[in-house]
Amino acid sequence: MITGFLALYIFMLAAFTGYEIISRVPVILHTPLMSGSNFVHGIVLVGAMVALGHARTSIEIAIGVVAVLLAAGNVAGGYVVTERMLEMFKTSKSEKSANK
C-alpha cells in the first residue's frame, strides 16, 4: 500500500528524475524524446487492463474497453513513431562512417 508521504516521496523523486533526464538533451533529440516519453506514458495500458479486469457492470466494461483500446494505441503508435525517428539517426551515422 502506498500512502501519504511515501507517495509524495515517489512523486517527488520521479519528477526530479524526469527533469534531470531532459535537461541534458541536445536540441536535435527533442522531438524523438518527446515521442519517447509519449511512449512511456503508454504504461497507462497496464492501468486500463486492471480497470477492465475488475469491471463488473456493462457500463464499466464498455468504458474499460475504450480505455484499453486507447492505451494500446498509445503504446503501439508511440513505439513505432519513436523507433522510426531514431532509426534515421542510426542510418545517418553509419553512412557518415562509411564515407570516411
Binding site: F11, A15, G18
Partner: peptide, 19 residues
C-alpha cells in the same frame, strides 16, 4: 496502487513540463 504507472507517469510529467 500501481507503482509502474506512478513512476513512469511522473517522469513523463516532469520531463514534458521542462520540454
Amino acid at each position: 496502487q500501481n507503482e509502474a504507472m506512478i513512476i513512469a507517469g511522473m517522469v513523463v510529467g516532469a520531463a514534458g513540463t521542462l520540454l
